[in-house]
Amino acid sequence: MMNPTLNFHVKLLGFDFLSLTQQPSSLSSSSDPISFYRKGKPISRVETVGVVVSRELKSCKFLKFLIDDGTGCVPCIFWLNHLDSPYFFRRNPSDVRIMSKIANNQAAQIQLGVVARVRGRITSYRGAPQITVADVVVERDPNAEILHWLQSIKLAQSCYNVNLPIAPLNR
């Protein structure tokens, strides 16, 4: 059975995100040097929703911002260096240009005071967890953040905190 907290975007509240524990990654296949755990369970991707309370743009490089959901401030880094990064050298250049344009459009919407929904990978910066953003959207519905709180609580109680039985292997 797949681990539900490892393979999907886990909806987390800020205080929960900030209390994740870190360990050097034991998986040789993992590209991340650090693994993150919530109550002992591995987590790699998260989704959070909150008010943007800080933003620092380094044009064509990155946008750093903080998401305040009322329980904690989650640091986010959104890379905008598609056109320079060796990471994208093997990709089709026209695809990379489109990805760069989409990322820059998303970054332009991230302004102080907006409510943003952020999805991405958990990474470590100076010993603290942050989100390396995969995508970010601005929420227009004034009830979106409330819904995220309730979904995060519900999922924690019904899924993330639950120890699922290990399914027997089919031989």
Partner: peptide
């Protein structure tokens, strides 16, 4: 330092959810 218009927010839901959130924390 930050402000936003939240016209359309369900204040009853907001206050009830706040209680649940504090309890969860």
């Amino acid at each position: 330092r930050v402000g936003r218009n939240v016209d359309g927010i369900d204040l009853n839901l907001y206050h009830q959810s706040l209680q649940l959130l504090k309890q969860f924390q």
